[in-house]
Design a protein around this nucleic acid. Sequence first.
RNA 1: AGCGGGAUGGAGCAGUCUGGAGUGCUCGUCGGACUCAUAAUCCGGAGGUCGUGAGGUUCAAAUCCCACUCCCGCUACCA
Length: 604
Amino acid sequence: MKRKFYVTTPIYYPNDIPHVGHAYTTIAADLFSRWNKLLGKEVFFLTGTDDHGKKIAEISNKNGKTPKEFTDELIPKFKEAWEKLNINYDRFIRTTDKDHEENVKKILQKIYDKGDIYLGEYEGLYCTDCESYYTEKDLIEGCCPIHKKPIEKLKEKSYFFKLSKYQDKLLKFYKENEEFILPNSKKQEVINRVKEGLRDLSISRTSFDWGIPLPFDKKHVCYVWFDALFNYHSGVLEKDFWPADLHLIGKDILWFHVVYWPAFLMAAGIELPKKVFAHGWWTFDKEKISKSRGKVINIDELVSIAGSDSARYFLLRATAFGDDGDFSEKALIDRHNGELLNKLGNLVSRVTGLVEKNGIEKTENSLAQYLNFPKINELINNFEIDKSLNNIFSFIDICNEYVQRNKPWETKDKKILYELIDSIKKIAIVLYPFIPETSEKISQKLGGFEFTKEELEIDFDPNKKIEKGEPLFQKIEENQKTIKEEKPEGIMTTNEVNFEDWSKLDLRIAEIEKVEDVSGADKLYKISLDVGELGKRIICAGLKPYYKKEELKGKKISYFSNLKPRNMKGIQSQGMLLAASSDNHEKVILISPEGEIPNGSRIG
RNA sequence: AGCGGGAUGGAGCAGUCUGGAGUGCUCGUCGGACUCAUAAUCCGGAGGUCGUGAGGUUCAAAUCCCACUCCCGCUACCA
């Protein structure tokens, strides 16, 4: 019987088109899927979308569509993106799929019957205008972040999952399954937090209806994670792949996958997955990926820089899997030119060119010993993806050295060329899970071969026709860049900004009401603003070296109101004011309206 | 604040668990070789008090222990 391997990505939230973060998890899943196929295993690779939830309901509403219509329109964007990246998934699941809904209902009923789901009261912070709940974090000075109105505490009947009951069972499980939470560095973090205690989890809502209704109380819909997590189980109900070998996720959702998820499964009496691996985040030009600041790179942009394989290669090679990485166009181009083109592309070009002229003659490949397949396999299984690539590329270096040392262009030694061709074939096979397009191209140049572990052992057939053909990679010059260099203090860094993006910014005229020092900060002022219809706001600004408090008071300024709030020296800064500054930052002046206009007036 | 991670030639990393001359990789830089190859490739050089502590353990510390500084992440019903 064939050994099986089941790998998943999270189901993505289809409220916008996919970006590099989504791509990363999915590419990694594709790598593990293809690698295990190469090993001869029977593989199932599941990805998809989480169509349910309050946010989707709201966004759809805003766009004048039903949630189903809205998500139906976005899902193709995901599928197209995965196609562009050569993602070979076996199923694209949606939480609105019938089999998933049935599965979730069945399991809910089962856990309810068992007594692990009970009716209780959910007390939340509720804004009547939004008709929705917020968490403490969302609030701005105790007010709704959208309507700026005081929030009220509201109780609602809700079903709860007895998460608390599973605290010890989970800790025991972690102990017995050391590889369940990966990477290791994250494990202790989770364990410590679980030890601090688990609260029961509200898993239903009556305040909206876009979700799976609870089978034992139709007034409630199943809330977020319960529904979403079970996709992994629903996806292979008929397939005999459960339990999953590997859930690949971003580190932001680790908690849900290693606490809620196993607890749900325990309650439902279902076997637990083997491994959950949380990878790191990508920053973009050293800044956190953020839609509102234009710090996003979508899949079209990603692929347009240097092609799908280079994008895959870069993401898998640039950072240790699990660590955070920084994405920049320059870094991607450097890897593309330096590693894929100069090392691999050039090796293939020079060797196939020499073979076209001189031919090959079968002999034992003395280089083969330097391609350490067991080691590469071990590295991949240990999630050391960057090192596995490093290992493969050091073999490419060995091949280039071999050409250099033996000068086949002088000696016309057919045996040397055979060794090199056979080595290139092996390289293409092991690289296939990483950069499938390139491996296919190499296979074509060498007359075709399979990408399997067995093929790796088979000597190259010298009668096959070898063609140099087109180069594998095109050189990308600096000035060919598709995305422009970051401007130092710029808001948007993609080279063109849609009007839509611009209109996301809410810029207002505001009046400075009060200015205070911030203790422990030599540049910061705490500034209270009157923003007319938006009410009062507090911001922090580094104006101390440039303005005296008295000078600021009563001044009208330009204010960026919907910037995500952040804490500065313990004060939450709600937005930022606009100022112009000279190159060396010596001179900083505020941007103020040149005439009288009411506070809160829009700028744009 | 608590918990977790990090600080290594100009840049980015590995090495730390299991102590053994600052070892390695990529980029950059300087010099050379080659001219088959997409001006690609190959060889060699320069460059580091391994965050700080005239700390501790040890014959021996980047590695183990302690203290401190600075960065980053997480702190749950938000996918």
